[in-house]
């Protein structure tokens, strides 16, 4: 049986005040990602989905601090890893793409050089070789005219192209895990569709696992095999994507799905009133008391 690539166990974190943690933001979150699997975390603002990804990357900023639990990456607890080794993993084995690529790219350096830097830094290539690999990487993310584009600065590119550059950088060293935090939220729908397809195809081809974070259930559905629904710092429901959408069990998931106007539903059923989540949930504070975590089904039985 394969071991999980990322195994998050009872992760707790919050705003640290001295040695105690006030304002818990994650109240014991556990989930696993198998090698090559695309796992989605969906939730609204403040649900804790983004801090989860920052904790995995070791990028939590003060005053946020982990107060309990483990983040096992290939069996190694990232939380107890020395900073040096964490840095070696970051950008190499675990990489990340963000909502706004402009903030993650250096405005004073060409995109070709920034991608090449990944090869120099993590694979010890020479600059000449790295530049060739960078152009190749741009071609892989289907940037037209990769040689010419490699000489561009980030501000000379559209949002969609910049996100492709980010993906090229993130996948440069064939990482084991790609963390994507709302990577398409700022993009137009048609560009979003292209970028999603790109992430899906490239990661599938390379066997890269994806932790995809989004507030958009549709985006999650189009890319992930499994989904975890977060609310109030807890994972309230987890299931295979299809099963989750067909048979949501948690009130909150049901509310979220019902709140979404579905394409084609008006044609089929006429205009139906959207579900007001507060009408099916009497007390939001009790939402995190129940959790539905479906067992992971693998060949030959349950995990």
């Amino acid at each position: 049986m394969t071991a999980p690539l990322l195994d998050i166990r009872d992760l707790r974190l919050g705003v640290a005040a001295g040695r105690t943690v006030t304002h818990p933001l994650l109240k014991g979150v556990s989930f696993q990602i198998m090698p090559g699997e695309a796992y989605g975390l969906v939730g609204e603002s403040g649900s804790g989905k983004s801090v989860t990804s920052l904790a995995v990357m070791g990028l939590l900023k003060k005053p946020l601090a982990v107060s309990g639990g483990e983040i096992l990456f290939k069996g190694q607890n990232l939380l107890s890893l020395p900073k040096r080794e964490m840095r070696r993993l970051r950008g190499n084995r675990i990489t990340m793409i963000f909502q706004e690529p402009m903030t993650a790219l250096n405005p004073l350096s060409t995109v070709g050089r920034q991608i090449a830097e990944m090869f120099v830094l993590h694979q010890g290539k020479s600059w000449d070789e790295a530049h060739k690999l960078a152009v190749e990487a741009l071609a892989n993310v289907r940037v037209p005219n990769p040689e010419r584009r490699a000489k561009n600065f980030p501000h000379q590119m559209s949002g969609g192209l910049r996100q492709r550059v980010m993906i090229a950088m993130a996948l440069a060293c064939n990482p084991d895990l790609l963390i994507a935090d709302e990577p398409t939220t700022a993009l137009d729908v048609t560009v979003q569709a292209e970028v999603l397809r790109l992430i899906k195809e490239l990661c599938a081809a390379r066997g890269t696992a994806v932790l995809f974070i989004s507030h958009d259930l549709g985006v999650i559905a189009s890319i992930c095999q499994r989904v975890g629904v977060m609310y109030g710092g807890c994972l309230v429901e987890e299931n295979e994507t299809r099963a989750l959408f067909d048979n949501p069990r948690h009130d909150y998931t049901r509310g979220l799905l019902g709140a979404l106007p579905r394409l084609g539903s008006r044609s089929e059923h006429g205009r139906q009133r959207l579900v007001d989540i507060d009408s099916i949930i009497a007390d939001r504070s009790k939402l995190t008391e129940t959790r539905f975590i479906a067992p992971r089904v693998v060949e030959g039985g349950q995990l």
């Binding site: 048609t190 979003q192 569709a193 259930l217 549709g218 559905a221 189009s222 299809r242 959408f245 394409l263």
Partner: peptide, 14 residues
């Protein structure tokens, strides 16, 4: 058509 096809709708995606 392109716009409609690009909508990340869970039903369509699944």
């Amino acid at each position: 058509r392109r716009l409609i096809a690009a909508i990340p709708d869970p039903d369509v995606a699944l």
